[in-house]
Computed example of a mutant assay.
Amino acid sequence: MSEINRSLRSHDLTPGEVAHRSGVAVSALHFYEREGLIASIRTAGNQRRYHRDVLRRVAFIRVSQGVGVSLADIRAALATLPEGRTPTKADWARLSRSWRGALDERIARLERLRDTLDDCIGCGCLSLKSCNLANPGDVLEQYGDGPVRLVGGRGM
């Protein structure tokens, strides 16, 4: 997120205040900032301050992550907002619609996994042809039998 021309205001929030109000650790706020998802301004003493609208932005990030949206997709969605503005209800509706297909696909994959999980528990093979968990569609067949996905494994 590019830094917008914002000046320090008396009601801006410290990282601790944002963390307390949003339920997100200060380290997560710093991470979100490094990832370009939120922005802070600095005091004369180089301390971070956040405008109050960052609370809605953090809520947007957390809810999006909670439904399985990647940070890369969240960043891309936030980048579509004019001048780094905080998402509105209408923005959420539009952006969440764009994620619906990927979420439906993930749900279907998880349901298939749930329905076949009892076939996999304890096998330890990780490349068994019938393993829908670690080798869907037998994509590892070309590497032969055994645990090819383990560190130092063949072919991967």
Rank of each mutant, 00 (worst) to 15 (best):
34 R>D: 08
35 E>L: 01
37 L>V: 03
54 V>S: 05
45 G>M: 07
40 S>C: 14
40 S>R: 11
36 G>K: 13
56 R>E: 01
61 I>A: 14
28 A>Q: 13
38 I>H: 04
33 E>G: 01
58 V>H: 06
31 F>I: 00
43 T>D: 15
58 V>L: 01
60 F>S: 08
60 F>H: 03
41 I>N: 13
55 L>H: 15
42 R>Q: 14
34 R>G: 06
34 R>A: 04
39 A>E: 11
52 R>C: 12
47 Q>K: 11
41 I>C: 14
48 R>K: 11
54 V>D: 06
29 L>D: 12
44 A>T: 15
51 H>D: 07
46 N>Y: 03
54 V>T: 11
36 G>W: 15
56 R>A: 07
35 E>N: 04
49 R>D: 11
60 F>E: 02
57 R>K: 06
47 Q>V: 05
47 Q>A: 05
35 E>G: 08
41 I>S: 15
61 I>C: 03
57 R>T: 04
47 Q>C: 06
52 R>S: 12
59 A>K: 03
57 R>V: 00
47 Q>F: 11
51 H>L: 02
48 R>S: 11
49 R>N: 08
43 T>C: 12
47 Q>L: 07
55 L>M: 07
54 V>H: 10
52 R>H: 11
37 L>I: 07
44 A>W: 04
59 A>V: 01
56 R>Q: 04
36 G>I: 09
50 Y>W: 02
48 R>Q: 12
58 V>Q: 06
58 V>P: 06
59 A>M: 02
51 H>M: 01
45 G>Y: 01
39 A>P: 07
39 A>S: 15
57 R>A: 01
50 Y>L: 12
54 V>L: 04
59 A>H: 02
46 N>R: 01
56 R>C: 06
26 V>L: 11
35 E>R: 14
49 R>K: 14
46 N>C: 02
33 E>N: 03
56 R>P: 00
51 H>K: 07
44 A>G: 14
49 R>Y: 08
56 R>K: 05
47 Q>Y: 14
34 R>I: 00
39 A>V: 13
37 L>W: 03
35 E>F: 05
28 A>N: 10
55 L>V: 01
53 D>S: 10
47 Q>I: 02
57 R>H: 00
51 H>N: 05
57 R>M: 02
31 F>S: 05
34 R>Q: 13
61 I>W: 09
45 G>F: 00
41 I>D: 11
45 G>A: 08
34 R>T: 11
45 G>N: 15
31 F>L: 15
57 R>P: 00
60 F>L: 05
60 F>G: 01
34 R>M: 05
37 L>A: 10
26 V>E: 14
54 V>E: 10
32 Y>V: 04
55 L>G: 01
48 R>G: 12
34 R>N: 11
27 S>W: 01
42 R>H: 12
45 G>P: 15
49 R>A: 04
39 A>F: 09
31 F>P: 01
44 A>C: 15
48 R>Y: 00
59 A>F: 02
40 S>D: 08
60 F>N: 03
31 F>T: 06
32 Y>D: 13
35 E>D: 09
42 R>S: 07
49 R>I: 10
28 A>M: 10
44 A>K: 15
32 Y>Q: 13
26 V>D: 13
45 G>L: 00
55 L>R: 02
